[in-house]
Design a protein around this nucleic acid. Structure first.
Length: 355
DNA sequence: CCTTGTGTTGAG
DNA sequence: TCAACACAAGGG
């Protein structure tokens, strides 16, 4: 479909979550009566009276939203332009979903004052502020990646949750175990809704390609042996998983050790696991999970108030080739300029490929 | 086969 | 910058 700079097309079959809890505070700028013209391509959609058919003109209904373009199959595409080039933001079932995707992109690309389809009412809304910082903490390509895969809202919510964790930490709520500042600030890496096979007998978790390559050491091809990764959970328990690439399925997986995690956390299909890393130079990795219902993970087992001993020391266990990882994981901040470069590099096509 | 999203053009 | 349009390339 596309061979962009960093070609990748893990078709995450994400549920088409209705976009935007954050946009609920938004009001449509335009409320034009839907005056659909013509019909979708060869699909149904034949507006009243097939008379003035014009049948063959197959005119696609233009969108009333900025950055939204109709697709032949009745769906909607979102796109934004920058530097004379189109950046494709993905396709959506609903017109307004596409419009919201554009809004997200335009705010990331042109700042908070950019003209959007849905105007923001409150400017000091806490939610809006959080979203703004979320946008700024991710590169353009990351944001576009989320839009294309329809995971933007999940990630946004996840980041909000993370934030509150940090706050509770700062407020001293966490003199949990080792009396000292044992908990370090984390940054969200990615989240995955586990599939039936992820929690089944296969004893493995498939890491979506784009996330694996971005956050975890790459060792594709030859060294299929994999590496051991250490993750700390909420209760300071350290989990060791073998991480490797399966040539057979061309996928990155967590194998050995994973089933134990599934068992202990009682993970069910539909639940999600999220990965994090410490902010500092020590790339400690963390794993967290939440049930499908969304109930924030407060697993009785993993909360165990005082499981102190010396869990913190284990943090350093992640002694795998961090060197190769660091270049990936440490690209969170100064993304403003760098990602622009990476962006320009992709200008082979008229439309910039981001994934 | 169907869908995506790229190539391309012309209007604003 | 932007959307309209056509359709090639890819995925299923």
């Amino acid at each position: 479909m596309d061979k962009g700079c960093i070609d990748d097309q893990t078709t995450t079959s994400e549920t088409i979550s209705t976009v935007a809890p954050h946009l609920t505070t938004l009001i449509p700028q335009k409320e034009i009566s839907l005056c659909r013209v013509g019909s979708g391509a060869s699909t149904v959609l034949d507006p009243e009276g097939g008379l003035e058919v014009e049948a063959q003109s197959r005119k696609l209904p233009s969108s009333r939203y900025k950055g939204v373009v109709p697709q032949p199959n009745g769906r909607w595409g979102a796109q934004i332009y920058e530097k004379h080039q189109r950046v494709w933001l993905g396709t959506f079932n609903e017109e307004d979903e596409a419009a919201k995707a554009y809004d997200v992109a335009v705010q990331r690309f042109r700042g908070r004052d950019a003209i959007t389809n849905f105007k923001q009412i409150i400017t000091d809304d806490k939610e809006a502020t959080m979203e703004a910082s979320f946008l700024n903490s991710h590169s353009k390509s990351e944001i576009i990646d989320m839009l294309r895969k329809h995971t933007y809202n999940d990630e946004l919510e996840q980041s909000k949750r993370n934030r509150s964790i940090h706050q509770s930490i700062r407020t001293g709520l966490n003199n949990s175990s080792s009396g000292l500042s044992s908990i370090k600030p984390r940054e969200h890496l990615f989240q995955k809704t586990v599939t039936p096979s992820d929690v089944g007998k296969l004893n493995r978790l498939v890491i979506p390609k784009q996330h694996a390559e971005k956050h975890f050491p790459v060792q594709k091809g030859g060294s299929s042996k994999g590496v051991l990764l250490h993750f700390e959970d909420n209760g300071s328990k350290v989990w060791r998983f073998r991480y490797s690439f399966w040539n057979s399925s061309q996928s990155y997986v967590l194998t050995k050790g994973w089933s134990r995690f599934v068992k202990e956390k009682n993970l069910k299909a539909g639940d999600s696991v999220s990965f994090h890393s410490s902010i500092g130079p020590d790339k400690q990795l963390y794993i967290d999970w939440k049930s499908k219902s969304g109930s924030s993970n407060t697993n009785p087992r993993s909360i165990k108030p005082v499981k102190l001993v010396e869990p913190v020391q284990m943090l350093r266990l992640f002694g795998v080739d961090i060197s190769s990882v660091s270049s990936y994981t440490s690209n969170k901040r100064s993304n403003t300029e760098r990602d622009l470069l990476g962006f320009q590099d992709c200008k082979k096509q008229r439309t910039i490929n981001v994934l």
